Amino acid sequence: MAQRRTRILSEMTWPEVREAIERGAGVFLPVGSTEQHGYHLPLATDVILPTELALAVADELDFLVAPPVAYGYRSRPLSGGGQGFVGTISLQARTLMSLVEDVLSELIRQGFERIAVVNWHFENQNFVYEAACLALERHRGSSARILVAEHPFAELSEATMKTLFPEGFPGWDYEHASIMETSLMLHLRPELVLFDRAVDDASKRHPWYDVLPVPEDFVPASGTLWKATQASEEKGRITWEEIVAQFREAVVTELAGTGSPEAVRHER
């Protein structure tokens, strides 16, 4: 398949988008947040990563990448540091669901039939799923199919986990702005990482439940929930390759069409 001028929908002209729909191209909708990620990572980390994931497979599978949803559901203290950090801008659940539902509904209305929601912000799960359900209910006669990736990857391989966490895996809720996210950003967007400011931090208490109002000892001072200094570009590269492979397989399995590997090989 010949490489297109751009895969970013907002950079295309409307005739280019029309042509993409007519040939059966799919569309990715990245969903993230504007949320603190410690002293060293940008607020847009949860937007950058799902967008990069979508772009990583867009050419070979013939997908466009829609403008990402850059705001997410409220940051929870034990998985994102909470709402107390300057720069974190969150939505109410109903606002997020309405926003994602409306965008998906518009994509379906215009004729896209292969759609994937790619979420990175942990707190958005369930809400993006509900939004996808509601969007399809608005278009009952459509043949559109939506893949909802509330988690951007399944379990990583044992080898990758040992590379990422040589001292043991603490759990994904601890991983906010820590080893994996920092490593991925060092690999993908190193110019945005202030690695000399990375710290190892943790909340004084990290129970399995939440409490409201949020106890002060649930929130680390830096916003980093574990050991960011153990990140590296190499860890990011290894992890990213596995995440991309898993995502590619999911899209091919559930949204096979003109952009499937079989079709790509045929066109070549």
Rank of each mutant, 00 (worst) to 15 (best):
M12D: 08
G72W: 02
A93D: 05
A2D: 05
Y71G: 00
H206F: 14
G82E: 13
G257A: 12
D200M: 07
V31P: 02
V118M: 04
A93H: 00
V244G: 05
A70E: 00
N124A: 02
T95Y: 04
L78C: 11
T258F: 09
G171E: 06
I48L: 14
V65M: 05
F195A: 13
V219N: 14
P207V: 05
G80H: 14
D217I: 03
V103F: 04
R23F: 04
W226H: 15
A70D: 01
G171H: 07
E254V: 05
G80F: 09
G38F: 12
K227M: 13
A131N: 04
A221N: 07
S79N: 15
M185Y: 09
D59N: 13
A25T: 00
A149M: 13
G26E: 06
R94A: 10
H176P: 14
A25C: 10
A58I: 05
E216I: 02
V264M: 01
V57L: 03
E150T: 08
E16H: 00
N119P: 02
G259A: 08
V211C: 08
L136H: 07
L156S: 08
L255D: 11
G236R: 11
A131R: 03
R189F: 00
L43A: 11
S203V: 03
W120L: 03
V118F: 02
L53F: 12
L184G: 00
R7I: 06
S260M: 05
S98T: 09
A135Y: 07
L194Y: 09
A132D: 03
V65A: 08
S79H: 08
G259P: 06
V69T: 04
A231M: 07
I146R: 03
A25G: 03
K227C: 11
R4N: 02
H121C: 06
E158T: 14
E191M: 07
R197L: 15
R268I: 01
R18S: 14
A250I: 05
A132Q: 00
M1I: 02
V57A: 07
T6K: 10
S33H: 02
E216R: 11
P213T: 02
Q246H: 07
L186C: 06
I238T: 14
V244C: 05
V128P: 01
K235T: 08
A116Q: 02
T45R: 13
E262I: 01
P213Y: 01
P261H: 08
A245P: 05
D217C: 04
S222C: 11
A154D: 15
G82P: 13
W120I: 01
L78A: 13
E242N: 06
A154E: 13
L99D: 01
H266M: 06
R138A: 14
N126D: 06
A20M: 00
A149D: 01
F218C: 12
A116V: 05
T239Q: 10
L64R: 03
D62Y: 06
L134C: 04
G80I: 10
D62K: 06
